Computed example of a mutant assay.
Amino acid sequence: MTSHHPAPRPARPVADLFSADGRLKAIPRKPARREALLAHLAATLFEDGRDYREPEVNEALLAVHEDFPALRRYLVIGGFLGRTKDGSTYRRQQQPGSPGGAIFAVA
């Protein structure tokens, strides 16, 4: 049992967000669903400890959805991908969950 888990979330898999060909049907509007999706994308598309140039990030995200700029922005804002100040390099971050992880919402 996971009774020690702080905020139990509905354990809906992200698989239902994808069509049979592996492409994302839509970017979820609900923050919890979107965060689950972003965690999945970060874990499956980006290796830990590796630097990615922006074109590589775009190409990886474009493989799942045409609105790769939105996905990239969500990944950075949510703390799943870190970005250098000049925006040239991205790196997968430790999963959010610590204070400051994905607290600020985009209005």
Rank of each mutant, 00 (worst) to 15 (best):
V57N: 05
S19K: 14
F46I: 05
L45Q: 08
E47I: 02
E35R: 00
L37D: 10
D51M: 04
S19Q: 12
D21C: 07
S19C: 03
D51V: 13
R33T: 10
E59N: 03
E56K: 07
L38H: 08
L41T: 09
D48F: 03
F46L: 07
P31E: 08
P55W: 01
V64N: 03
A39I: 04
G49E: 00
D48C: 05
V57Y: 01
E54F: 01
S19D: 13
R33C: 05
V64K: 00
A39E: 00
S19F: 00
A20I: 12
R29E: 03
A26I: 12
K30I: 12
D51K: 15
R23F: 01
P28N: 08
R29F: 00
A39G: 12
K25W: 10
F46A: 08
G22H: 05
L24A: 10
A36N: 12
I27C: 06
P31N: 14
G49Y: 06
A26D: 14
D51S: 10
R29N: 04
L24T: 14
R33K: 06
R33Y: 05
R34T: 11
A32G: 14
R50N: 02
D48H: 13
A20G: 15
D51W: 10
L24N: 10
E56H: 01
L61Y: 04
N58Y: 00
A32V: 14
D51P: 13
L41P: 08
K25N: 15
F46C: 07
E54A: 13
A42L: 02
H65I: 11
K30F: 01
Y52P: 01
A63E: 15
A20W: 08
R34S: 09
A42C: 05
L61H: 06
A20T: 15
D21V: 04
R33H: 10
R50I: 12
D48N: 14
F46W: 03
A63P: 06
F46G: 07
L45P: 01
D21K: 15
A32R: 15
D48W: 02
T44Y: 02
Y52S: 10
A39H: 03
R50Y: 02
A60L: 09
L24S: 11
R50M: 04
P28I: 02
L41G: 11
A32M: 10
V64M: 02
E35Y: 01
A60I: 09
K25Y: 04
P55K: 08
N58Q: 12
E56M: 01
R34C: 11
L62I: 13
R29P: 00
R34V: 09
E59F: 00
N58I: 04
G49N: 12
E56P: 00
D48Q: 12
A42G: 09
P28E: 14
A32I: 12
E59I: 03
A36Y: 04
E59A: 09
L37E: 06
P31A: 13
L37K: 11
R53F: 01
A39C: 07
H40L: 01
R34W: 03
A36Q: 13
S19T: 14
E54W: 01
L62Q: 15
D51T: 15
R29K: 10
L45E: 06
G49H: 14
L45Y: 02
A43S: 13
K30M: 05
A32F: 10
L41E: 14
R50V: 11
R23L: 07
D48S: 15
A26L: 11
R23P: 09
